[in-house]
Computed example of a mutant assay.
Amino acid sequence: MNRRILGNTGIHVSELAFGGVEIGLPYGPGVRSEQDMVQEKDALSLLQNAFDSGITFYDTARMYGKSEYLIGEAFQNCREEVQICTKCRHLRDTSGKLPAPGQLVKRIRESLEESLQTLKTDYLDVLMLHQADVEILQHETICREFQDIQKEGLARAIGASTYSVAESELAIHSGIWQVVQLPYNLLDQRQAVVFDVATEKGVGLVVRSVLLRGLLSERGRNLHAALEKVEGHIRYFAELAKKYRMDLSEYATRFVLAQPQISATLVGIDRQEYLEKALETAAMDPLPTELMKGAIPFPDPDFIDIPHWDRMGWLD
């Protein structure tokens, strides 16, 4: 497994990162309840197998159900050999507003303490804001509190999980957030505009949504009528990949791994066969030139909005 440095943090991570949401809560196509999820003993075995195969970077969050607990259980006896990134609880209240400064500090600290206890560790490699919007990214109390946590040695680096290009740009230029986790894949390549500046600023980039919640795989077929154009574009990628005797998920993952500015590529793994496939893909040679040139994003990237599709029932 190749390793890459996470910006200017001094932290080296495996280029393939284990996305922990799927082992923690019902998530993704066809997973509607805990009954559909991987069971605890199998999840622990999966984490150990990933580690034994060279994956050292694990991404989780306070909001990911049992994910932190499972990662803590799996690596409590080899903590120094893995890099753990977790995300703070959501900071907005039920009305969508940010609490007063004192309450914000309390919420951040309580979330941190819960994460440390659940992960069975006394420090984090990366502590991130979860769903960091523009207001949160530049909020004085939030910025100061995260910086204090880092100064206290409770987090080696601090970062933010963003959605829009504007949010990513703000985080990268802030001089505060050292790691940014953002969405990027074959269909939606909008965030590529921040890659070079992140490298210049020494900000580590972690990419999620590589397979767009499974749509950039064999699951991206027979979609809702509202997604007809998206399915057509997915079919174009699949046919291009087939020319080179690879499947779509392989193409999608290798495309992201081919970007030198990216430190780690998150892959959601909740089955042994998914782990083996991800490892096999990461070990392959760079993509042929035709496939890199053929990676043409969807012409209306603003339409690529998985949460909206969920709300509309288009992914049922």
Score class of each variant (00 low, 15 high):
204 G>M: 03
204 G>P: 00
205 L>K: 14
206 V>G: 05
207 V>E: 07
207 V>L: 05
208 R>N: 06
208 R>T: 00
210 V>P: 05
210 V>E: 07
210 V>G: 04
213 R>I: 00
214 G>E: 13
215 L>W: 06
216 L>E: 08
216 L>G: 10
216 L>P: 04
218 E>I: 10
218 E>S: 14
219 R>Y: 13
219 R>G: 11
221 R>F: 11
221 R>D: 12
222 N>K: 05
222 N>P: 03
222 N>I: 01
222 N>Q: 00
222 N>R: 09
223 L>K: 08
224 H>W: 04
224 H>L: 05
226 A>R: 13
228 E>K: 14
228 E>H: 05
228 E>P: 01
228 E>N: 07
229 K>Y: 04
231 E>A: 01
231 E>V: 01
232 G>H: 05
232 G>N: 07
232 G>F: 02
233 H>R: 06
233 H>N: 02
233 H>F: 03
234 I>S: 06
234 I>H: 10
236 Y>N: 05
236 Y>W: 06
237 F>D: 13
238 A>R: 03
239 E>L: 12
239 E>D: 15
239 E>T: 12
240 L>M: 14
242 K>I: 09
243 K>Q: 13
244 Y>V: 04
245 R>W: 07
246 M>G: 14
247 D>P: 10
248 L>I: 01
248 L>G: 02
248 L>H: 00
250 E>P: 03
250 E>K: 11
250 E>F: 13
250 E>Y: 12
250 E>M: 09
251 Y>L: 14
252 A>C: 11
254 R>L: 04
255 F>P: 08
